[in-house]
Design a binder for these strands. Structure first.
Lengths: 340, 340
DNA sequence: ACCCCGTATGAAAACGTTTACGTTCCGCGC
DNA sequence: GCGCGGAACGTAAACGTTTTCATACGGGGT
């Protein structure tokens, strides 16, 4: 059996109330009593039972993170950013991921009830109705990269559109005229925005009839296949812009296999700037997303919501900047251009 | 205010006991009563308060993971493995990381009290005394890659020694005679074991006097510097074995910068088989550690401990296998050799 | 008709905290 | 000397569950 506050109280010849006060640093207890209680607590190795505490205080010092998956560099970085910021606020992080379908996500969401002070949600299933159905009342929630536009939940997005647009413009600026785009999973909100950036950049350049979208699913293999497809096109594209880095890397393999030179014959660009992007041959031009910062920003936002009184004005939807990272795969010179 | 079990009971004209029974699928409640209660609960969007529940059941359906850091592919994979297995058991994962010193780790450890059913610990600070001091009584605990040898806690290790030894033997088998080793942080248990594997393989080959250990700290930069140092040695090594992949990659940069050919002049090998290893030029020969499997195995072990009755015999210390992955950086041909 | 037993249900205790509210006591000003 | 105020401390309620125990009820065996 675990040692409880009662044991400490008995040993120190005080009431449980005094123990609670002493250990939490509240007033109403003599310095010497406090000292005595602290000593007894330390001797007994007393550690308060958090479930009991949060039952009464309605605080758990924990935030929940609902993620679709944990695969790859993106989530790794996201979690790291969240954890970093959480730690700074003395918060812990309850992680739940890999829910393939909405039912699983719903179960996970409900399991968070009474365990967390707030929620960070990044899930393709998290639409408005889903949240209403499963989210108990007023749990502060921040949506990350969600297509949901609600004024009841805060939202934080990556500037996918801006990043894709500036990349497309960069390729156009290098003189490329036939730019193909490798898309990702259709349901993915980021993909849609990236694709939109690509389309609109072309349209703005008067090349609206040169939109070539190849299918992909974010995996290296799909990028490889898309690369093959691009090679089969007549006339061939002179640039390929993939919706993420892994597909761009797969595409590079397809090109080098076909002895097509990068960037001379076909320029290649990706999106995300995963660590690997610097190390492939040739180094990959891409759009950097400061993922850890995204996580940090999301958590900071959540903390503000948790601490804010009811009446607090809802903050506007926040957009996290992306930046263009030019490397050899598109014939650039290695500069980084930041974009708001 | 949140809707509680009492609200459901009142609305359904039953007692809270019946609601509890109905919702938890216990016997002692008519099928039709159960149905009615379920309907009311759904209508009111009732979600049980987990803190209250675990206060009485002494179960939280949560395991804690105490990690030193979240940086890099290793922890990403580890967490993924843990999460995967946890999800299969209906468990959630409370993550705490980045505790720079023992004090922070202790705070994190204590904060887990009453929040988790078991603990996965991977921390350089987690020695026997530390655990005794801060770990409340009988919380089931699995130590990952720890140097602590205790029969009170379960332990799970990567076969660092075996992996390093087989890699060194492989390099020797290719005819390399002067093999340098780039070490990692001194306190790191894995590093020590890897270094031991390297030393003993050399000793077994009668090359005990050709042990060259260069300092490193697991970062790419330190690998780069170690590469420079290796180049300055007379006579030069004909192979460099880095204690992890990132240092091997940094080393590759140093060599290519100095126009030294890999593998013709100097073979290079790493350890971990991070995703990037396949993509660098030349692709990196390395020792694969199935990190996700390590995480899964650790969690499975923990689950067994949680479910096991007190009297259960302690399982022996488990070692997770590594395998040799031969790629171009040491002149191999791309095979994988498994090792128990 | 009566007893008994199993089943459905309710009342209440318990889990370990925090905190509102009393109570005691001491010192101070009149 | 007396009342009064405030500090120190204790008592007990509250948080939302689960579970033990008691109770009511209905039916079958005698």
């Amino acid at each position: 059996m675990s040692v409880t506050i009662k044991d400490v109280a008995r040993m120190a010849n005080v009431s449980v109330a005094s123990v609670s006060r002493a250990l939490n640093g509240h007033s109403g207890v003599t310095a010497e009593t406090q000292k005595r209680i602290r000593e007894v607590a330390a001797r007994l190795r007393y550690v308060p039972h958090n479930a009991a505490r949060s039952l009464i205080t309605r605080r758990t010092q924990t935030i929940g993170a609902l993620l679709p998956d944990l695969h790859g560099a993106f989530f790794s970085e996201l979690i790291r950013g969240i954890d970093l910021a959480a730690r700074a606020h003395g918060l812990y992080m309850l992680v739940s991921s890999s829910h393939g379908d909405a039912t699983e996500a719903a179960i996970a969401l409900r399991a968070m009830q009474g365990r967390v002070d707030g929620l960070l949600v990044m899930s393709p299933h998290a639409d408005e109705a889903f949240l209403d159905e499963n989210l108990p009342i007023v749990l502060p929630t921040v949506l990350i990269n969600s297509h949901v536009r609600s004024d009841r939940h805060a939202a934080l997005d990556v500037d996918d559109y801006g990043g894709a647009r500036i990349m497309t413009e960069h390729l156009l600026g290098l003189g490329r005229k036939r730019i193909a785009f490798i898309a990702g999973p259709e349901v993915n909100h980021d993909v849609q925005e990236r694709c939109r950036g690509y389309r609109e950049a072309l349209a703005a350049a008067g090349l609206g009839d040169r939109v070539f979208v190849l299918p992909g699913d974010f995996t290296e293999e799909s990028g490889y296949h898309a690369g093959k497809q691009a090679l089969a096109m007549v006339p061939r594209p002179d640039a390929i812009f993939a919706a993420n880095d892994m597909m761009a890397i797969g595409c590079l393999s397809a090109l080098s296999e076909a002895k097509v030179r990068t960037p001379e014959d076909i320029a290649v660009a990706g999106f995300d700037d995963i660590p690997m992007a610097r190390y492939v041959t040739p180094p990959l031009t891409t759009v950097r997303v400061r993922i850890a910062e995204l996580g940090e920003a999301a958590l900071e936002r959540l903390v503000r919501m948790i601490e804010a009184p009811e009446d607090a004005a809802p903050e506007p939807r926040t957009v996290v900047a992306t930046e263009l990272v030019v490397r050899a795969s598109c014939g650039g010179n290695g500069t980084v251009r930041r974009r708001a």
